[in-house]
Nucleic acid binder design. Structure first.
Length: 646
RNA sequence: GCCGGAGUAGCUCAGCUGGCAGAGCAGCCGCCUUGUAAGCGGCAGGUCAGGGGUUCGAGUCCCCUCUCCGGCUCCA
């Protein structure tokens, strides 16, 4: 049989030659490094015999696919170790996931941190044993026998269709119903760590039994493992909940679960973002509007929320009727639609664009709440454009430009996804053809690369989603542009066309930040609390070296405040070192030091956040001018001369 | 909502098998007058999340509630 290799060369082997033997024939080093292989595009074990002509790629540490294989094998090693310590544990699923793996166990007693340590030690022994992972094809009857004591595996087994090949994998004492593939032997699992335990429902179904999940991570090298653990540490340090407290930006109180208290400093950031957005939207033809927070059920009946979404709404008692007929709004769309219908609209008015930062409430289940990223009260940067169908492409192009501008100023990179018609949907195919065509044309005209997500659109129309990456590589879905053909009907929206006839507009829902709360959480973590000057709650702290300079310092601070620079004076009777340490930990962009010499000369010694001992003596006026300029231009970098670390 | 873990001073955390509630930092008061990441000394600060129970005695053991954390589910 013929084997084609990635370099294009072809070799002949007898039928039944294994991938490993192919690797050996190329080089012993390759054979030793082989973790898995890709045969005709499918990832398989290296021990797999080749039955016919094939394209073969040997997967070593260098390929990303081999990492998934390694991690899945690590999950088996984990299960092997758990079985040694808790022989009665029944096994669920144990897949590779992003950055690691997990395995679910049905056990009477949950795992403790001490258990985790022991299990980890046991895993090292399993790895040391260097048992091969052996694949075996079995028939259903044999599989039932093998897993007679593992009801979860039996359940999975019964789901496999008759045509499917049933495989089991064995490593030493451990046997698992598993499709594979695996690395050649347990000895390949060298660099791993168990991270935490958590409960999980069997099959993700809250009506089924609770399993206990162990999460771990595994890598090809010690270096990669350490880097990953370091990244976790870094993420912890950047955690917005921690920085929110340390930088005094916001807090939560048990009396208002899921709703943040914004302190003065946090509110400055919040308002700066809102103000910036309003300013830019006004320049871009949006109407900035406010609508009521509380509505009676009439609105929700029209919008359809009363039927499907009521559980998630905060209902309010009407004293006159004694009924909970009112609700805090969970979204802005319906009230914007009402605003649209409040007047007769002409084609000349379109597009009409409403933007709102109103407060919304959603009654999230208590277990879902988490810091600022999952809250019950929040403000979306919500906008709806009402337009004629032929305007879609142009309008979407503008919106994409707007998103690009906002993310760009903040230094956020993003990728886009184009989601098309789902199986369950409204409207006929012709409508979807037009909608998807217009949206795609707009997206393509921007020149952005995008990922196609067939079937991922909303039931009422296709959409474009924006995933933003933060400075430590995590992705967040933020922006969205969604076409909506359902609500114009529901709310009976119309406009008079050039032909003097009534037409239906199309709605585009659009958000850039998502919610301000969640977005600020992302920004805090992205900047690690070190905000660009224009967003920093305190932009300059003036530090007199001794009490002698307090007067001079206060005067300077007053001058800065007069040109709109947020300034504080630290005139406590402390050493300069003390004051600098505090300003650095508070991430204040500029420290303006005033000692005897500066007071005398009317200058200031500027220390830049994070730049260490370097200082620059400048005139006070020049300093004010430069800071002002950085605020106005929303400069990301702090410091004045040349490239310098933030 | 469900499963598991946690809640001790403003913050970070000690407090063993039940026996008088502690430290560092922050705060306040004093001294020091300070030149680029913590000067020195003192003082004050607690319904041990809340409620109930067991016990001669509960921060510690049991039950209920609240909140937070990690997941599941859901989602902006």
């Amino acid at each position: 049989m013929q084997v084609r290799l990635p370099d294009g060369s072809e070799r002949r082997y007898p039928t039944g030659t294994t991938v490993l033997e192919v690797a050996e024939s190329i080089g012993s080093r390759l054979a030793r490094a082989a973790l898995a292989a890709k045969v005709n595009g499918q990832v398989v074990d290296v021990a797999r015999p080749l039955e016919e002509d094939a394209t073969v790629e040997i997967l070593t540490e260098k390929s990303s696919e081999s990492l998934d294989v390694l991690r899945h094998s690590a999950a088996h090693v984990l299960a092997t170790a758990v079985r040694r310590i808790r022989p009665e544990a029944r096994i669920g699923f144990g897949p590779a996931i992003e950055d690691g793996f997990y395995y679910d166990f049905e056990v009477a007693e949950p795992f403790t941190p001490e258990d985790l340590k022991r299990i980890e030690e046991e895993m090292a022994k399993v790895a040391e044993a260097d048992d091969p992972f052996e694949r075996e094809v079995v028939d259903r009857a044999r599989a039932r026998e093998l897993f007679a004591a593992d009801p979860l595996k039996l359940e999975r087994l019964e789901e496999l269709g008759d045509g499917e090949v049933i495989t089991v994998y064995r490593n030493g004492p451990f046997l698992d119903l598993c499709r594979g593939p695996h690395v050649p032997d347990t000895g390949r699992i060298k660099h791993f760590k168990l991270l935490n335990t958590a409960a999980a429902y069997w099959r993700g179904d809250s009506n089924r039994q609770t399993l206990h999940r162990i999460y771990g991570t595994a890598w090809h090298s010690k270096r990669e493992l350490e880097d990953y653990l370091h990244r976790l540490e870094e993420a912890k340090k950047r955690d917005h909940r921690r920085l929110g407290r340390e930088l005094d930006l916001f807090f939560f109180h048990p009396t208002a679960p899921g709703s943040a208290f914004w302190t003065h400093r946090g509110t400055i950031i919040f308002n700066a973002l809102v103000g910036w957005m309003v300013e830019v939207l006004l320049e871009n033809g949006y109407d900035i509007v406010k609508t009521p927070l509380l509505f009676n059920k009439g609105l929700w009946e029209v919008s359809g929320h009363w039927g499907k979404y009521r559980e998630n709404m905060f209902l309010v008692l009407d004293n006159e009727t004694g009924e909970h007929d009112f609700s805090l709004k969970p979204m802005n769309c319906p009230s914007h639609h009402l605003m649209y219908t409040a007047k007769k609209r002409s084609y000349r008015d379109l597009p009409i664009r409403y933007a709102t930062q109103d407060v919304l409430h959603r009654n999230e289940v208590s277990g879902a709440l988490s810091g600022l990223t999952r809250v019950r009260q929040f403000q979306q940067d919500d906008a709806h454009a009402y337009l004629a169908e032929e305007q879609i492409s142009d309008e979407v192009g503008r919106m994409v430009g707007l998103l690009d501008y906002f993310y760009g100023v903040l230094g956020l990179e993003y990728t886009t996804k184009f989601a098309t018609r789902p199986d369950v949907r409204i409207g006929d195919d012709e409508m979807w053809d037009r909608a998807e065509g217009a949206l795609l044309a707009a997206l393509e005209s921007t020149g952005l690369a995008y990922e196609l997500k067939p079937g991922d659109g909303a039931f009422y129309g296709p959409k474009i989603d924006f995933d933003v990456s933060d400075s430590i590589g995590r992705k967040w879905q933020l922006g969205t542009i969604q076409l909506d053909y359902a609500n114009p009907d529901r709310f009976d929206l119309g406009f008079t066309g050039e032909d003097n006839r009534e037409h239906r507009p199309v709605i585009i829902h659009r958000a850039i930040f998502g919610s301000f709360e969640r977005f600020i959480a992302i920004l805090i973590e992205h900047y690690a609390g070190a905000f660009p000057v224009w967003l920093a709650p305190v932009q300059v702290v003036v530090l007199p070296i001794s009490d002698e300079q307090n007067e001079s310092a206060r005067q300077f601070a007053g001058d800065l405040a007069a040109v709109g620079i947020r300034t504080e004076v630290d005139d406590r009777s402390e050493t300069l070192n003390y004051k600098i340490r505090e300003a650095e930990t508070q991430k204040v962009p500029y420290m303006a030091v005033i000692g005897g010499r500066e007071a005398e000369a009317g200058t200031v010694a500027v220390r830049v956040r994070g730049a260490g001992r370097k200082q620059e003596i400048v005139t006070r006026q020049a300093f004010a001018g430069r800071v002002r300029e950085q605020v106005d231009s929303k400069t990301l970098r702090v410091g004045f001369n040349g490239p310098r670390e933030m």
